[in-house]
Design a protein around this nucleic acid. Structure first.
Length: 575
DNA sequence: GCCGTTTTCGGCCCGACTGTTTTCAGTCG
């Protein structure tokens, strides 16, 4: 059991406690413990084994006992009891926007609603409107929230799919008779949300039956949907479907290309083949006149045969990649190793779980040469935003730390709230003391497009602002972003020399990859930032890079690939 | 449930918004 598992169960316990109507502070203690556990730098199993878990700030006697029980037995009594007491469907109700623990408790107790389906039915029967504390509008809003959820029902966030898929591929690769195995489909194309996991493997026909046997009998499966010698489908415990296809070595590159897609990309590929009197499908590239097929050892061979430079999977959306490949003008996509600065990282000063020094250690181990601390600003009171005097304290701390560091720099940043009128919540003097300012919207999200756009434009015109944070505020599969005229924002950012964030949190991935290309074309630099609230979250930078690549970004388009001296220059140029 | 202490209880994050009410509870960030 790892820290993420423990964190998840602690957080679920917190939600269940709230639903039960327990002391909200008790619930918060569990939620907080979950967060703290996820941020532990040492292995949780080791910390528990050493008896050090109770020494961790935020974990007292009871939680130390509960966590120890969980780590050693895989179960936690408090959690088990709560799950026995409350219908499992109540948990999913908490994912609906506008519905918190109090209201869920009310509809459960007064209307007997135990899951989303029953809630929808109750709304349609107009039973919520007559419930005390509820009304017509709330009922309508809940129906909209359910509809939004329905729309995203079968999709999953990139990092969840990635983790599950990598695990499955590792299992398949353990078999010595497997020549190749990799993830195909939308995950290979770095799409931000994924429906199914597609895995392709090549193995001799004689070995396929036993490989499939092994695949469908893994313990992590919820159900086996289909099982055959060339294709099996399974449903994972996390609700995802995963397909494994096994082919022979000769077919493998064609199948990999076909099952990676996108559908639109494949259509163009087949058309190009046809122009060359060839036929492309998942089994090969066949000659239409004469016989036989064009032998391709790998995907680059296929592209070459069609007169194209090799197109990386993440660009295969039929969004300009063919024209570029034909002219041999494909971008040299940014790589994780190009990133030198870890920007937009929260510390214990606001709502992060690690200290600056801990974050420095982690960032260095990830090959970074600078860290941009960005806690919340003062109006984000919910997140422990920093009033001016605490900002100055943090600056002193950063100076102290920098004095001890060699070959690494901590930069003084802030994630400054953009107020509804577009102003920032510190005065100009304080703002000018930061090395850089990320300006983000966190409140009053319901705006017309015009309001949102003007609010953002005014914010980035503030000369202190270097980076516009998560520009649409979207939460993938959960909340649409505010409507904003991104073209106008990008144009203004280009004029001013302000960078735009590609927030690498797998829940945001905002700026959307489709707009990265637009920003790049206008010369707007993109800052790929993890928006990390712990040292572990900094690994999300990988996801940000994956999406940046999908958005055609090259190292030169990404602000934090610059060495620190050039980074400083780039962000102070606007004075 | 955790923490800190003027140590064994009292406070714990808070301001804005929404939709309900007719002064405020619930939710959100």
């Amino acid at each position: 059991m790892d820290a993420q598992d423990v964190g998840r169960i602690l957080e679920e316990t917190a939600v269940l406690l709230e639903l039960k109507g327990e002391n909200p502070f008790k619930a918060r203690a569990y939620a907080n413990a979950g967060r703290v556990v996820r941020g532990l730098l040492d292995d949780i199993n080791q910390v528990v084994a050493d008896g050090r878990i109770g020494d961790v700030q935020g974990i007292g006697k009871t939680l130390a006992h509960d966590i120890t029980e969980l780590v050693t037995t895989g179960k936690m009594t408090v959690h088990e009891e709560l799950r026995r007491l409350l219908p499992a469907g109540l948990l999913e109700l908490t994912t609906l926007s506008g519905l918190g623990p109090k209201r869920i408790k009310a509809i459960y107790e007064k209307l007997g609603v135990t899951n989303v389906g029953e809630l929808e039915y109750a709304c349609r029967e107009n039973r919520l409107a007559s419930l005390e504390g509820f009304g017509e509008k709330t009922q309508q809003n809940l129906l909209s929230a359910i509809a939004l959820r329905e729309k995203h029902r079968e999709r999953h966030l990139y990092h969840h799919a990635r983790e599950a898929a990598d695990g499955l591929v590792a299992v398949v690769r353990q078999r010595p008779d497997i020549a190749c195995a990799e993830v195909a489909g939308s995950l290979r194309r770095h799409c931000e949300t994924i429906r199914d996991i597609d895995i392709l493997a090549s193995a001799p026909a004689s070995a396929r039956k036993s490989i499939m046997e092994m695949f469908v009998s893994q313990p992590e499966l919820e159900a086996v949907v289909a099982r055959g010698e060339t294709k099996s489908s399974v449903r994972l415990r996390n609700g995802m479907n995963a397909d494994l296809r096994i082919l022979d070595d000769v077919e493998y590159p064609y199948a990999l290309n076909y099952f990676t897609g996108s559908k639109e990309h494949n259509t163009v590929m087949r058309a190009r083949a046809k122009e060359r009197r060839l036929k492309l499908n998942e089994y090969g590239l066949f000659r239409l006149d004469g016989e036989g097929c064009v032998a391709c050892r790998d995907e680059p061979d296929i592209y070459r045969a069609l007169g194209l430079a090799y197109i990386p999977p993440e660009l295969r959306e039929d969004m300009g990649e063919f024209e570029a490949a034909q002219r041999d003008a494909l971008p040299h996509l940014v790589e994780r190793g190009d990133i030198r600065g870890m920007l937009h990282v929260h510390t214990t000063a606001s709502d992060g779980v690690n200290s600056i020094e801990e974050l420095v250690t982690a960032a260095r181990s990830m090959g970074m040469s600078y860290l941009g601390v960005c806690d919340h600003s003062q109006s984000a009171a919910y997140a422990g935003g920093l009033p001016p005097e605490r900002v100055r304290q943090q600056w002193e701390e950063i100076d102290r730390i920098n004095g001890k560091l060699d070959g690494f720099v901590v930069l003084k940043g802030i994630e400054s709230d953009i107020r509804p009128d577009g102003s920032l919540d510190y005065d100009g003097e304080l703002l000018s003391g930061f090395d850089f300012v990320v300006a983000s919207i966190h409140s009053k999200l319901k705006m017309t497009e015009q309001e949102a756009t003007e609010r953002i434009l005014r914010a980035i015109r503030n000369p202190a602002v270097s980076i516009l944070g998560h520009p649409t505020g979207r939460l993938l599969l959960a909340r649409e972003g505010y409507p904003v005229d991104l073209r106008a924002v990008i144009d203004e950012a280009a004029r001013l020399g302000v960078a735009i964030e590609l927030n690498a949190s797998p829940h945001r991935l905002d700026l959307d990859w489709t707009w990265c290309k637009v920003a790049k074309a206008k010369g707007v630099k993109i800052a790929i930032c993890p928006d990390a609230h712990s040292a572990a979250d900094m690994r999300d930078i990988d996801i940000g890079v994956a999406l940046g690549r999908k958005g055609w970004l090259e190292a030169g388009d990404v602000l934090n690939t610059l060495p620190v001296s050039e980074f400083r220059e780039a962000i102070t140029r606007r004075g």
